[in-house]
Amino acid sequence: MEKTETFIAALILAAVVSVAGIIVSIKVTAKERLRISTTTSLYDSGLLEAIRNQYETKRSISIQIISRGTGLAVKLAQGGDADMILVHAPSKEFFFLKQGYGVCRKIIAYNFFAIVGPETDPAEIRELTPLEALAKIVEAGRNGQAKWVSRGDESGTHIKEKVLWEAAGFIWENLRSEISWYREASKGMGGALILASERSAYTLTDMGTYLSHSKAGLIALDVLVSEGEELLNVYSVIAVNQTRHPHTNFNGAIDFIKFLVSDEGQQLIGDYGKDDYGQPLFYPAVKLLQENNDPVTDSIKEYAFFNGTECPAEYRGDYLELYG
């Protein structure tokens, strides 16, 4: 082989790599970065990308979204690998605050989970209350007529599922061992939905992921139960405590929280999905909690408040203006 040809090939490789590198790095270097670890349902629905685009246009900051399940999102922030979390599991959030990892919690949005399943509905749960439906699914499952797919990944949806089983009078650890009908997906919501569809099983899902997958023709599942305050799903944002992790971008986190609870941010949340699905995927929560004149307000307070507030005073830091 000709030496010159090899040399030229190597030169081209090096040139391509460095040109690509320069183009890619120009955009992000020297920019302040804000790392948000978040639940997959917020990212996969596309909402967070929409928020990021609008937020970044006005500021010189690079929003870096790490999209994992709520369980891992919280762990990353505890370890100091994120500046803030955006999650939906009140029990984990309270723990996060109590252990001193987080401050300035704000509830930003809510929606409802749904129980979806095959159109044939072998357990006959259509239009039942959530807890009745779960009892029926267990019964049918034990008779070999129905199957259930669980996220099984400590995500917010999985935590909700466990709470629902308990409320319906079952011990989740026991159900888990009934592998003839109860299967853990150990995947994101999309993966769990596809698995449920392939197995003609029931599962618990957020509406955003369900609608996007249904519209794309990836799943053949119907929404069977979507009414009932037990299915409430509340999204909150918490900044990582800077006294715990001094290297984190605390000011950036606070500014982003302020944006999310502002009229602009709340409208963005409330409008998202209307064009694509004919219905919003998330409902803004800030005004609702201030005005206190909607029945859902009480449900949110009962489900996602700690000691009667979205963020107890000792975890508010110096940012009292966030709490009206």
Partner: peptide
């Protein structure tokens, strides 16, 4: 890498993410 959009997302992680987002 974390597959952060606009920062560390590469072809392989982007493909996986598009499945999760139902953008086949």
């Amino acid at each position: 890498g974390g597959s952060i959009p606009g920062f560390t997302m590469v072809l392989t992680t982007a493909i996986a993410l598009q499945r999760d987002m139902a953008n086949i």
